[in-house]
Design a protein around this nucleic acid. Structure first.
Lengths: 150, 150
DNA sequence: GACAAATGTTACTAGAGTGGTGACACAACA
DNA sequence: TGTTGTGTCACCACTCTAGTAACATTTGTC
Protein backbone atom coordinates (compact mmCIF):
# COMPACT_ATOMS: atom_id res chain seq x y z
CA UNK A 1 0.00 0.00 0.00
CA UNK A 2 1.63 3.15 -1.08
CA UNK A 3 1.58 5.21 2.01
CA UNK A 4 1.89 8.97 2.16
CA UNK A 5 3.14 11.16 4.97
CA UNK A 6 0.92 14.08 4.06
CA UNK A 7 -1.46 13.49 6.92
CA UNK A 8 1.38 13.40 9.43
CA UNK A 9 2.85 16.63 8.11
CA UNK A 10 -0.55 18.31 7.97
CA UNK A 11 -1.17 17.53 11.63
CA UNK A 12 2.31 18.78 12.44
CA UNK A 13 1.57 22.05 10.65
CA UNK A 14 -1.75 22.57 12.39
CA UNK A 15 -0.26 21.80 15.79
CA UNK A 16 2.55 24.21 15.16
CA UNK A 17 0.20 26.97 14.07
CA UNK A 18 -1.74 26.69 17.28
CA UNK A 19 1.39 26.68 19.39
CA UNK A 20 2.43 29.90 17.68
CA UNK A 21 -0.81 31.27 19.05
CA UNK A 22 -1.90 33.90 16.57
CA UNK A 23 1.45 34.94 15.19
CA UNK A 24 1.65 33.99 11.51
CA UNK A 25 4.15 31.23 10.76
CA UNK A 26 6.10 31.30 7.51
CA UNK A 27 6.46 28.22 5.36
CA UNK A 28 10.18 28.48 5.93
CA UNK A 29 9.74 28.34 9.69
CA UNK A 30 7.34 25.42 9.50
CA UNK A 31 9.62 23.60 7.08
CA UNK A 32 12.49 23.84 9.52
CA UNK A 33 10.41 22.22 12.24
CA UNK A 34 9.10 19.51 9.92
CA UNK A 35 12.56 19.16 8.42
CA UNK A 36 11.55 19.45 4.80
CA UNK A 37 11.30 21.96 1.99
CA UNK A 38 9.16 25.13 2.21
CA UNK A 39 7.61 24.18 -1.12
CA UNK A 40 6.22 20.98 0.36
CA UNK A 41 4.74 22.96 3.23
CA UNK A 42 3.16 25.53 0.94
CA UNK A 43 1.59 22.77 -1.12
CA UNK A 44 0.00 21.28 1.98
CA UNK A 45 -1.01 24.68 3.33
CA UNK A 46 -2.82 25.26 0.07
CA UNK A 47 -4.91 22.13 0.64
CA UNK A 48 -5.56 23.00 4.28
CA UNK A 49 -6.62 26.52 3.34
CA UNK A 50 -8.96 25.22 0.66
CA UNK A 51 -10.55 23.04 3.32
CA UNK A 52 -11.06 26.08 5.53
CA UNK A 53 -8.63 25.00 8.22
CA UNK A 54 -5.98 27.67 7.74
CA UNK A 55 -5.67 31.16 6.32
CA UNK A 56 -2.65 33.06 5.18
CA UNK A 57 -1.40 36.60 4.93
CA UNK A 58 0.54 37.53 1.86
CA UNK A 59 3.58 39.72 1.80
CA UNK A 60 6.20 40.72 4.30
CA UNK A 61 5.35 39.77 7.86
CA UNK A 62 2.84 37.29 6.49
CA UNK A 63 2.45 33.59 7.02
CA UNK A 64 -0.22 31.10 7.94
CA UNK A 65 -2.71 30.93 10.78
CA UNK A 66 -5.40 28.58 11.97
CA UNK A 67 -8.74 29.60 10.51
CA UNK A 68 -10.61 28.44 13.62
CA UNK A 69 -9.93 27.37 17.19
CA UNK A 70 -7.71 24.32 17.51
CA UNK A 71 -10.38 22.58 19.57
CA UNK A 72 -12.70 22.79 16.58
CA UNK A 73 -10.33 21.19 14.11
CA UNK A 74 -10.53 17.41 14.15
CA UNK A 75 -7.76 15.29 12.70
CA UNK A 76 -10.26 13.80 10.30
CA UNK A 77 -10.64 17.27 8.80
CA UNK A 78 -6.93 17.34 8.05
CA UNK A 79 -7.14 13.81 6.72
CA UNK A 80 -9.91 14.68 4.30
CA UNK A 81 -8.09 17.83 3.26
CA UNK A 82 -4.84 16.20 2.20
CA UNK A 83 -5.64 12.59 1.42
CA UNK A 84 -7.88 10.91 -1.10
CA UNK A 85 -9.95 9.24 1.61
CA UNK A 86 -9.67 5.88 -0.12
CA UNK A 87 -7.63 3.26 1.65
CA UNK A 88 -8.63 0.44 -0.67
CA UNK A 89 -9.09 0.25 -4.39
CA UNK A 90 -11.48 -2.20 -5.98
CA UNK A 91 -10.38 -4.28 -8.96
CA UNK A 92 -8.66 -2.37 -11.73
CA UNK A 93 -10.51 -4.20 -14.46
CA UNK A 94 -14.12 -5.08 -13.76
CA UNK A 95 -14.44 -8.77 -12.91
CA UNK A 96 -16.12 -11.24 -15.22
CA UNK A 97 -19.88 -10.88 -15.34
CA UNK A 98 -20.14 -14.53 -16.38
CA UNK A 99 -18.99 -15.64 -12.94
CA UNK A 100 -21.42 -15.39 -10.02
CA UNK A 101 -18.61 -14.27 -7.75
CA UNK A 102 -17.25 -11.77 -10.27
CA UNK A 103 -20.71 -10.38 -10.81
CA UNK A 104 -21.35 -9.41 -7.19
CA UNK A 105 -18.01 -9.22 -5.45
CA UNK A 106 -17.52 -5.52 -6.03
CA UNK A 107 -20.73 -4.39 -4.43
CA UNK A 108 -20.17 -6.75 -1.51
CA UNK A 109 -16.63 -5.49 -1.15
CA UNK A 110 -17.48 -1.86 -1.36
CA UNK A 111 -19.88 -2.12 1.53
CA UNK A 112 -17.27 -3.82 3.70
CA UNK A 113 -14.56 -1.42 2.63
CA UNK A 114 -16.85 1.53 3.24
CA UNK A 115 -17.45 0.42 6.81
CA UNK A 116 -13.74 -0.02 7.42
CA UNK A 117 -12.85 3.39 6.03
CA UNK A 118 -15.64 4.94 8.06
CA UNK A 119 -14.30 3.31 11.23
CA UNK A 120 -10.90 4.78 10.52
CA UNK A 121 -12.31 8.25 9.99
CA UNK A 122 -14.42 8.04 13.12
CA UNK A 123 -11.30 7.38 15.11
CA UNK A 124 -9.62 10.41 13.58
CA UNK A 125 -12.69 12.48 14.40
CA UNK A 126 -12.18 11.84 18.11
CA UNK A 127 -8.97 13.84 18.28
CA UNK A 128 -8.60 17.59 17.76
CA UNK A 129 -5.61 19.77 17.06
CA UNK A 130 -5.98 21.06 20.60
CA UNK A 131 -5.54 17.49 21.84
CA UNK A 132 -2.36 17.23 19.82
CA UNK A 133 -1.01 20.45 21.28
CA UNK A 134 -1.75 19.13 24.75
CA UNK A 135 -0.15 15.76 24.18
CA UNK A 136 2.87 17.35 22.55
CA UNK A 137 3.22 19.22 25.80
CA UNK A 138 4.17 22.52 24.24
CA UNK A 139 2.48 25.50 25.68
CA UNK A 140 1.13 26.48 29.05
CA UNK A 141 -1.84 28.41 27.72
CA UNK A 142 -4.93 26.54 28.96
CA UNK A 143 -6.54 24.70 26.05
CA UNK A 144 -9.91 23.09 25.78
CA UNK A 145 -8.47 19.78 24.63
CA UNK A 146 -7.70 16.85 26.80
CA UNK A 147 -5.35 13.97 26.20
CA UNK A 148 -6.13 11.53 23.41
CA UNK A 149 -8.41 8.76 24.58
CA UNK A 150 -7.20 5.58 26.23
CA UNK B 1 -2.60 7.73 -0.51
CA UNK B 2 -1.36 5.17 -2.86
CA UNK B 3 -4.11 2.68 -3.00
CA UNK B 4 -3.73 -0.94 -4.04
CA UNK B 5 -6.33 -3.40 -5.23
CA UNK B 6 -4.58 -6.40 -3.75
CA UNK B 7 -6.99 -6.72 -0.88
CA UNK B 8 -9.97 -6.67 -3.22
CA UNK B 9 -8.47 -9.33 -5.44
CA UNK B 10 -7.42 -11.44 -2.46
CA UNK B 11 -10.98 -11.47 -1.14
CA UNK B 12 -12.22 -12.31 -4.60
CA UNK B 13 -9.86 -15.26 -4.76
CA UNK B 14 -10.83 -16.59 -1.33
CA UNK B 15 -14.52 -16.24 -2.10
CA UNK B 16 -14.08 -18.05 -5.37
CA UNK B 17 -12.14 -20.88 -3.75
CA UNK B 18 -14.93 -21.49 -1.29
CA UNK B 19 -17.56 -21.40 -3.99
CA UNK B 20 -15.63 -24.06 -5.86
CA UNK B 21 -16.11 -26.12 -2.73
CA UNK B 22 -13.10 -28.38 -2.53
CA UNK B 23 -12.24 -28.65 -6.19
CA UNK B 24 -8.85 -27.00 -6.81
CA UNK B 25 -9.02 -23.80 -8.88
CA UNK B 26 -6.24 -23.00 -11.30
CA UNK B 27 -4.70 -19.56 -11.46
CA UNK B 28 -5.92 -19.36 -15.03
CA UNK B 29 -9.49 -19.98 -13.96
CA UNK B 30 -9.30 -17.46 -11.14
CA UNK B 31 -7.68 -14.90 -13.42
CA UNK B 32 -10.55 -15.16 -15.85
CA UNK B 33 -13.04 -14.39 -13.09
CA UNK B 34 -10.97 -11.52 -11.71
CA UNK B 35 -10.20 -10.38 -15.24
CA UNK B 36 -6.47 -10.16 -14.93
CA UNK B 37 -3.31 -12.11 -15.58
CA UNK B 38 -2.62 -15.56 -14.04
CA UNK B 39 0.75 -14.24 -12.91
CA UNK B 40 -0.91 -11.63 -10.76
CA UNK B 41 -3.11 -14.29 -9.19
CA UNK B 42 -0.19 -16.59 -8.50
CA UNK B 43 1.68 -13.77 -6.82
CA UNK B 44 -1.25 -13.15 -4.51
CA UNK B 45 -1.83 -16.84 -3.92
CA UNK B 46 1.76 -17.08 -2.79
CA UNK B 47 1.11 -14.45 -0.13
CA UNK B 48 -2.15 -16.07 0.94
CA UNK B 49 -0.49 -19.47 1.19
CA UNK B 50 2.35 -18.06 3.25
CA UNK B 51 -0.27 -16.67 5.62
CA UNK B 52 -1.83 -20.10 5.93
CA UNK B 53 -5.08 -19.20 4.21
CA UNK B 54 -4.72 -21.32 1.10
CA UNK B 55 -2.86 -24.38 -0.06
CA UNK B 56 -2.04 -25.58 -3.52
CA UNK B 57 -1.53 -28.80 -5.37
CA UNK B 58 1.22 -28.87 -7.94
CA UNK B 59 1.03 -30.56 -11.29
CA UNK B 60 -1.74 -31.60 -13.57
CA UNK B 61 -5.17 -31.44 -11.98
CA UNK B 62 -3.72 -29.15 -9.36
CA UNK B 63 -4.70 -25.69 -8.26
CA UNK B 64 -5.49 -23.82 -5.08
CA UNK B 65 -7.79 -24.55 -2.17
CA UNK B 66 -8.77 -22.88 1.05
CA UNK B 67 -6.57 -24.10 3.88
CA UNK B 68 -9.40 -23.83 6.40
CA UNK B 69 -13.18 -23.37 6.50
CA UNK B 70 -14.38 -20.11 4.95
CA UNK B 71 -16.13 -19.21 8.18
CA UNK B 72 -12.75 -19.21 9.93
CA UNK B 73 -11.06 -16.84 7.49
CA UNK B 74 -11.65 -13.21 8.38
CA UNK B 75 -11.10 -10.47 5.85
CA UNK B 76 -8.51 -8.95 8.15
CA UNK B 77 -6.46 -12.11 7.64
CA UNK B 78 -6.44 -11.47 3.91
CA UNK B 79 -5.64 -7.82 4.54
CA UNK B 80 -2.63 -8.64 6.67
CA UNK B 81 -1.50 -11.24 4.16
CA UNK B 82 -1.34 -8.99 1.13
CA UNK B 83 -0.99 -5.43 2.42
CA UNK B 84 1.62 -3.67 4.49
CA UNK B 85 -0.90 -2.88 7.22
CA UNK B 86 0.21 0.73 7.30
CA UNK B 87 -2.29 3.26 6.10
CA UNK B 88 -0.28 6.26 7.21
CA UNK B 89 3.40 7.05 7.11
CA UNK B 90 5.02 9.34 9.60
CA UNK B 91 7.39 12.06 8.44
CA UNK B 92 10.04 10.95 5.98
CA UNK B 93 12.77 12.94 7.67
CA UNK B 94 12.65 13.10 11.45
CA UNK B 95 11.34 16.50 12.57
CA UNK B 96 13.53 19.04 14.27
CA UNK B 97 14.42 18.13 17.84
CA UNK B 98 14.94 21.82 18.59
CA UNK B 99 11.19 22.48 18.24
CA UNK B 100 8.87 21.31 21.03
CA UNK B 101 6.31 20.28 18.47
CA UNK B 102 8.85 18.52 16.29
CA UNK B 103 10.24 16.73 19.29
CA UNK B 104 7.01 15.02 20.31
CA UNK B 105 4.71 15.05 17.33
CA UNK B 106 5.71 11.62 16.08
CA UNK B 107 4.95 9.74 19.25
CA UNK B 108 1.67 11.60 19.61
CA UNK B 109 0.82 10.88 16.00
CA UNK B 110 1.72 7.23 16.12
CA UNK B 111 -0.66 6.61 18.96
CA UNK B 112 -3.51 8.27 17.09
CA UNK B 113 -2.64 6.55 13.85
CA UNK B 114 -2.33 3.23 15.64
CA UNK B 115 -5.85 3.56 17.00
CA UNK B 116 -7.21 4.45 13.57
CA UNK B 117 -5.53 1.54 11.87
CA UNK B 118 -6.72 -0.77 14.60
CA UNK B 119 -10.29 0.43 14.12
CA UNK B 120 -10.03 -0.33 10.44
CA UNK B 121 -8.70 -3.82 11.08
CA UNK B 122 -11.36 -4.51 13.68
CA UNK B 123 -14.00 -3.77 11.10
CA UNK B 124 -12.35 -6.18 8.68
CA UNK B 125 -12.26 -8.80 11.41
CA UNK B 126 -16.05 -8.77 11.62
CA UNK B 127 -16.50 -10.29 8.18
CA UNK B 128 -15.48 -13.76 7.08
CA UNK B 129 -15.05 -15.29 3.67
CA UNK B 130 -18.21 -17.26 4.38
CA UNK B 131 -20.04 -13.96 4.79
CA UNK B 132 -18.73 -12.85 1.43
CA UNK B 133 -19.91 -16.06 -0.23
CA UNK B 134 -23.33 -15.52 1.29
CA UNK B 135 -23.60 -11.91 0.27
CA UNK B 136 -22.37 -12.70 -3.22
CA UNK B 137 -25.31 -15.04 -3.38
CA UNK B 138 -23.47 -17.84 -5.12
CA UNK B 139 -24.16 -21.21 -3.75
CA UNK B 140 -27.03 -22.84 -1.96
CA UNK B 141 -24.91 -24.96 0.35
CA UNK B 142 -25.73 -23.83 3.89
CA UNK B 143 -22.84 -21.76 5.24
CA UNK B 144 -22.14 -20.69 8.76
CA UNK B 145 -21.82 -17.07 7.77
CA UNK B 146 -24.54 -14.53 7.87
CA UNK B 147 -24.88 -11.34 5.93
CA UNK B 148 -22.45 -8.50 6.63
CA UNK B 149 -23.59 -6.38 9.53
CA UNK B 150 -25.96 -3.44 9.12
C1' DG C 1 7.84 54.86 -4.42
C1' DA C 2 11.32 51.27 -3.93
C1' DC C 3 12.79 47.33 -1.61
C1' DA C 4 12.32 43.18 0.98
C1' DA C 5 9.59 39.35 2.59
C1' DA C 6 6.16 35.99 1.79
C1' DT C 7 2.63 33.49 -0.53
C1' DG C 8 0.61 30.77 -4.37
C1' DT C 9 1.45 28.19 -8.19
C1' DT C 10 3.83 25.75 -11.69
C1' DA C 11 7.14 22.58 -13.55
C1' DC C 12 10.62 19.21 -13.24
C1' DT C 13 12.97 15.25 -11.09
C1' DA C 14 14.22 10.86 -8.71
C1' DG C 15 12.49 7.16 -6.32
C1' DA C 16 9.06 3.77 -4.90
C1' DG C 17 5.05 0.95 -5.49
C1' DT C 18 1.60 -1.42 -8.51
C1' DG C 19 0.10 -4.49 -11.72
C1' DG C 20 0.67 -6.52 -16.33
C1' DT C 21 3.54 -9.81 -18.95
C1' DG C 22 6.68 -13.43 -20.20
C1' DA C 23 9.83 -17.07 -19.04
C1' DC C 24 11.31 -21.21 -16.90
C1' DA C 25 12.42 -24.86 -13.48
C1' DC C 26 9.95 -28.16 -11.02
C1' DA C 27 6.20 -31.20 -9.44
C1' DA C 28 2.38 -34.31 -10.22
C1' DC C 29 -0.83 -36.88 -12.79
C1' DA C 30 -2.19 -39.99 -16.69
C1' DT D 1 7.03 -39.54 -21.11
C1' DG D 2 4.12 -35.80 -22.09
C1' DT D 3 1.03 -32.53 -20.23
C1' DT D 4 -0.72 -29.52 -16.84
C1' DG D 5 -0.08 -26.31 -13.50
C1' DT D 6 2.54 -24.08 -9.63
C1' DG D 7 6.20 -21.03 -7.84
C1' DT D 8 9.32 -17.63 -8.77
C1' DC D 9 11.96 -14.35 -11.14
C1' DA D 10 12.72 -10.43 -14.06
C1' DC D 11 11.21 -6.63 -16.68
C1' DC D 12 8.21 -2.78 -18.11
C1' DA D 13 5.00 1.10 -18.09
C1' DC D 14 2.36 3.80 -15.19
C1' DT D 15 1.34 6.45 -11.16
C1' DC D 16 2.16 8.75 -6.88
C1' DT D 17 5.19 11.04 -3.61
C1' DA D 18 8.08 14.49 -2.09
C1' DG D 19 12.04 17.26 -2.94
C1' DT D 20 13.58 21.30 -5.53
C1' DA D 21 13.66 25.51 -8.15
C1' DA D 22 11.55 29.32 -10.26
C1' DC D 23 8.53 33.25 -10.68
C1' DA D 24 4.59 36.46 -10.54
C1' DT D 25 2.03 38.73 -7.06
C1' DT D 26 0.96 40.80 -2.71
C1' DT D 27 2.05 43.28 1.43
C1' DG D 28 4.67 45.82 4.91
C1' DT D 29 8.47 49.07 5.81
C1' DC D 30 11.74 52.60 5.09
Amino acid sequence: MPVSSRFAVAVHILTLLDVKGGRPATSEYIASSVNTNPGVIRRLLGQLARAGLTTSRLGAGGGSLLAKPAAHIRLVDAYRAVESGRVFALHHATPSARCPVGRHIQSALSSVVGRAERALEEELAEVTVADMVASVGARGRPKVGNLPRR
